[in-house]
């Protein structure tokens, strides 16, 4: 029986792999649902903040924070949000590809870039290819907390305030739906405020302690909330992408097993036929 045993062990090992991938798919599916809920939960905070900032911007024109001022761009910063783990299809790679194209375009214009990475994959990427990584955080887990991000974001914002960076972008995967994740690069600072035009009559808040301090606190929190939102959204993308990838892997394993089973059956049949013909041949000789 030529190769029948080998084929059998191969089938068994593929079956084991298939069990793992299908388990991973189910885990990713349930994690995705939770990540999506978290994504929805973070929205009201940022929305409310945008509202207040939009108002402050309008009602209080005599003070403009440096986060809201455009200036000439010489050096830019990227905050790159990636996943900690692999086996999630082309999620991270697609984003890095888009990022490289951007960096190159800026590089051609003589604009240098610094980086800040969130997640192991982005860190590994820049470890391999160089680039100045100013800050990094990894192992955020499935439930990221905003306090883990504060330090990392602060490094970038401080660099911006000191004038080392003139613009900060955030780079993450936007969750369109379970099947589609879109690599996105958005400008974080300076804040592009969508002014609300409906406020026709002039009124202002009472500020405690004063407007500058309130606005400072508000803007920092707003930016952190945006970064946090991207992290959560990227997490949902990671899970859904993994779910799709693992579904494909399970299907592939299934079709591989079918093929091998066919080969195995043929080999077995051939062995039996050969044995019979040998016996018949032997009987005829006697």
């Amino acid at each position: 029986m030529a190769g029948a045993k080998e084929i059998r062990t191969q089938i068994a090992s593929i079956k084991n792999t298939q069990k793992i991938t299908s388990a991973m798919r189910m885990v990713a599916a349930s994690k995705m649902r939770r990540a999506q809920e978290r994504m929805a939960a973070t929205r009201p905070y940022a929305e409310k903040m945008r509202h207040v900032i939009g108002h402050l911007d309008q009602a209080h024109p005599e003070y403009t924070h440096s986060f809201m001022k455009e200036r000439e761009v010489k050096r830019i910063g990227y905050i790159i949000v990636s996943s900690d783990r692999g086996l999630c299809g082309g999620l991270n790679n697609n984003m890095f590809r888009k990022l490289i194209r951007e960096i190159r375009e800026h590089g051609d214009k003589g604009i240098q870039a610094d980086f800040c990475t969130i997640g192991l994959k982005a860190l590994g990427f820049f470890r391999r290819f160089g680039g100045k990584v100013m800050a990094q955080i990894t192992q955020l887990g499935d439930q990221p907390h905003i306090e883990d991000l504060i330090g990392t974001v602060k490094v970038m914002l401080d660099a911006y305030e000191k004038g080392e960076l003139d613009r900060i972008y955030i780079c993450y995967n936007r969750f369109v739906n379970t099947m589609v994740q879109e690599p996105t690069i958005e400008q974080l600072v300076p804040i592009t405020s969508e002014a609300e035009k409906e406020l026709s009559h002039h009124w202002d808040y009472i500020y405690e302690p004063d407007s500058k301090e309130v606005l400072d606190g508000l803007l920092t929190r707003y930016l952190e909330a945006l970064v946090y939102q991207s992290v959560v959204e990227n997490g949902a993308c990671e899970q859904s992408s993994r779910m799709v990838a693992m579904k494909a892997a399970t299907d592939n394993a299934g079709s591989l097993i079918d093929e091998l089973q066919l080969v195995y059956n043929k080999a077995r049949q051939a062995a039996i036929t050969q044995e019979i013909s040998e016996i018949v041949g032997g009987a005829a000789a006697v």
Binding site: C116, T117, V133, M134, A135, Q136, I137, E147, I150, G151, T152, K154, V155, D158
Partner: peptide
Amino acid sequence: AAAEDAKRRA
């Protein structure tokens, strides 16, 4: 301190 930490890690 958190910012310093992030830098050091990098």
